[in-house]
């Protein structure tokens, strides 16, 4: 009996430490007063509403969304064929290719941002937006390859051969037989990539210009000016967004199977 209660106490404290802070910012954002405080000075929704009126937040939200969606789509367009090739074929330099594709996980993001700024944006004149797009795509690519690969390992290659013998071309065999059986993995990769890209900070630190800032960077910049509860409200909204997406993915896809 005591063991059971000890276990509950340990888990309870751990979860309070991990999740408690979110509850606090959700509530802090509900403040009716002017400054960030907990417990808040009265309750109102005004900060939650104000978030939508701050123009820079709106612009950076759109940029972050676009980066996350298109960056992940391109990462999948590159990553699905790569995962397929690495699983199906005995290709030359397979280990080298795997190492290259996994590199963005190991290299600290801030260095990537700096490198792209110095050697792509400044000398060549690449726009900051395009550099951001490249960086976010590269960042998501390893996850796309890994998640799609793991959903492909149980897929036997003779299924494709069967499809070809029934009249399919290689390409249509991929779309008719392979893709339907890995679509859960592809969707999981998309969600994981989206969340990773959307929440990404270090890579984007140096990649910001006039009017071009990802949302997290914009929030950091806003916090340097003022500690009003709007950032708390925005943080809470973003947390709901991420949790909502992951919750739906888990419910309809069994997301955690793939990650």
């Amino acid at each position: 009996m005591t063991e059971k209660w000890t276990s509950r106490l340990i888990l309870g404290l751990t979860l309070i430490f991990l999740i408690g802070p979110f509850l606090i910012i959700i509530i802090a954002g509900l403040s009716a007063g002017q400054s960030l405080a907990f417990p808040p000075d009265g309750i109102s929704l005004k900060w939650y509403l104000k978030v939508f009126e701050i123009e820079s937040f709106r612009d950076s939200f759109i940029l972050s969304m676009a980066l996350a969606i298109f960056g992940t789509l391109i990462a999948l367009a590159l990553g699905v064929p790569a995962a397929y090739a690495l699983n199906r074929y005995e290709i030359p330099y397979a280990e080298t290719i795997k190492t290259i594709v996994a590199a963005p996980i190991i290299v600290p993001g801030i260095i990537v941002g700096l490198a792209l700024l110095r050697y792509l944006v400044l000398p060549i004149g690449l726009t900051v937006t395009l550099a951001l797009f490249f960086a976010h795509t590269a960042l998501v690519l390893p996850y796309a390859v890994r998640v799609v690969s793991s959903s492909m390992t149980n897929l036997r290659s003779d299924m494709e051969e069967a499809a070809v013998l029934l009249g399919c071309t290689r390409l249509s065999a991929f779309f008719k037989v392979v893709l339907p059986n890995i679509k859960g993995g592809v969707l999981a990769a998309f969600i994981l990539g989206f969340v990773t890209s959307f929440n990404q900070v270090p890579v984007s630190l140096f990649l910001s210009g006039p009017g071009v800032r990802t949302l997290p960077i914009d929030m950091l910049a806003y916090m340097e000016i003022t500690y009003d509860p709007s950032v708390a409200a925005l943080s809470a909204l973003l947390a709901f967004l991420s949790v909502g997406i992951v919750f739906l993915a888990e419910k309809f896809l069994g997301f955690s199977r793939y990650v």
């Binding site: 802090a28 960030l36 929030m219 916090m223």
Partner: peptide, 18 residues
Amino acid sequence: VVLPLMISPVARTYAWIV
């Protein structure tokens, strides 16, 4: 336990200011 990993680190860190 996994949930916090899906949430923006900015939001996660900001809470500590409060």
